[in-house]
Design a protein around this nucleic acid. Structure first.
Lengths: 349, 349
DNA sequence: CTGAAAGCGCTTACAG
DNA sequence: CTGAAAGCGCTTACAG
């Protein structure tokens, strides 16, 4: 029945049904109640009489009713969805982390979605990410990425930044402890190898992890009194191929050949290992190698790779916990978790 | 100015501003136009006078206006977001695929999000997934999963099912060609190894890929006249650990020892390789091994693993293309893409 | 080229 | 315990 206040009555101007999916008024009609009551059996069942609720539930079942999350979100400003933003999907690095984050999110009553921040051009990150839908966001920022950090700030939703060097007001952060374990790894190498013959084959030059690991390498070499160490540090990418190319080049052409390599990650280390094998350079006898990450490739390599174990699952779990905590109470002070790593010495060094 | 039709005027009952974010009416006020005009400069700028549009754009800038996607989605039923549903996030298998899918989605003007279908209990999949937000969905269904398939059907959005054996009306499908290459791989093994000494160490028993690969193995053995071959087929999981345990057990305790192994995937193969090395069983001299996937661990192993290359990037790209095509024209007949694989023989066999 | 107004499908304070 | 109604922030047919 149209209210008199809505006169003059215009004719309906477009079909309002987009699909056959049923909406709340269908359920209300079928159960013989108002939409308010249907909404209540969904959101506050304790406010509804049992018999009524039962009738509504049956109607919902029969109509296969699913609330429209657009409409719901427009009111409640909440979707129950947490987002993880990755720089890209490549590699296996994020698998274990996402698995743990997903589990923790479910435990807390949220769903987790993952998106990448890889942008083709200069498009606005916040524009390109379905970030309005999120109750909270966990962003990996392993490279300087002002656009991303700024747009997360603009959104003013609960956020935790992983690996970021930037601070963002009111935002939790989580980083892995690169320095201690990189230091331990390099010390382990110089224990039995002349510091002058130790090399660092790192990842991308602008990557925060790369920077920290390279700096730890340089520091240990300085502490051992090695001569100007910067020509023993190479930057490339986190890939098997880069390690392979570096080793093929360096192991064949250099006069002062490396006898120990601290790799920026396990992939690089495996590349070095492969090249050494191909060149007949025995590992660890003539070349000792340590990787970083504790990834599955490190377990698959032979000799088994010494590496720095990064507790990916723990990082994922913690990040979700921080994010959920912040959603529940936005006033608490943001914290900065530093996740410890552990040097695991195996056969390659 | 309240319309007279809305009398009696009630007092405003709750604060309608949730945050400081500006909304379309703020922009309209500032630019001195109606919200309709603001909406038009966003969605159909050709309908707006240049000078007006310029004023509106300036107002949008100054207010840092971002359209509320809930409100927009409620009207347009479209978000520009494609979703990929994975059984879980574990492993590296999906990395290259997602990377390619993401790139293709951007190319087509969509954003890609990824979610997992791992459900703690019997919760409704469609309930637990933010699937109402999606313009299209690409779902991996490597196991029987009626709940997922049914709820995708109920949603009646453009969908492509990967690896699924189930058909779903009006839905595109994409599968890899397990049979040809599994057959080629096993034939390659029995070429120089007695069929009776060939074993298959497979993945999960209910996994569709596992089933196809095991069946191809059995078929080749039958074709070579091997005696009852089912005791040479073991099912486990797609993990290094399972391959390792199987090999440790089988290589030490069996009287008729395997001299060739067709593994369900590369991880399993690497596990077998590790166990063989540990037991002093030389590969490929005394044990020939072939994996499946062409993953990074296969490249890292030594001897380098023979494997069946699965073109992950191509699968991802194709799936997005199919999905986008179906969104653009829902009436076209669904197709079933079978992605070819390729046997790559390396040092392990 | 522009605006007034209806409508998308929900939720919830208010009033029984 | 339940319903009528306003409102969330947009889009778009209609009428200038």
């Amino acid at each position: 029945m149209r209210s008199v206040y809505n006169t003059p009555v215009k004719k309906k101007r477009r079909s309002t049904r987009f699909s056959t999916a049923s909406v709340i008024s269908d359920v209300a009609d079928r159960a013989g109640v108002s939409t308010a009551t249907v909404s209540r059996v969904i959101n506050s069942p304790e406010l509804v009489a049992d018999a009524t609720a039962e009738r509504v539930r049956r109607a919902m079942d029969e109509l296969d009713y699913r609330p429209n999350l657009f409409a719901k979100g427009l009111i409640t400003r909440s979707t129950g969805v947490l987002g993880v933003i990755l720089p890209d999907f490549h590699g296996e690095f994020y698998g274990a982390l996402l698995q743990a984050a997903d589990a923790e999110a479910r435990r807390a009553g949220y769903n987790l979605i993952v998106a990448s921040d890889a942008r083709p051009d200069s498009a606005d990150a916040a524009q390109s990410l379905p970030v309005h839908f999120l109750d909270g966001v966990i962003a990996f920022v392993p490279f300087p990425n002002d656009a991303l950090v700024r747009s997360i700030g603009d959104l003013s939703i609960s956020a935790v930044l992983i690996d970021a060097q930037q601070e963002l007001e009111g935002t939790d952060r989580s980083s892995i402890d690169n320095t201690s374990c990189a230091t331990a790894a390099v010390r382990h190498l110089v224990e039995r190898t002349d510091a002058d013959d130790c090399f660092h084959v790192g990842g991308p030059e602008t990557n925060y992890d790369s920077i920290d690991r390279a700096e730890a390498f340089r520091a240990v070499l300085r502490e051992r009194g090695a001569s100007g160490s910067d020509d023993r540090v190479a930057s490339g990418e986190f890939s098997i191929d880069w390690g392979y190319r570096w080793a093929l080049d360096t192991l064949t052409t250099r006069t002062g050949r490396p006898t120990a390599v601290f790799a920026g990650n396990d992939d690089i280390a495996v590349g070095v290992l492969n090249a050494a094998r191909q060149l007949g350079v025995a590992c660890p006898d003539r070349l000792r190698i340590v990787g970083f990450d504790g990834s599955r490739v490190s377990a698959a390599s032979s000799p088994k790779l010494s590496t720095v174990q990064v507790p990916l699952a723990e990082i994922g779990t913690k990040a979700v916990q921080m994010c959920v905590r912040h959603i529940a109470d936005p006033t608490i002070n943001p914290s900065h978790a530093v996740v410890p790593t552990r040097l695991a010495v195996h056969a390659s060094s």
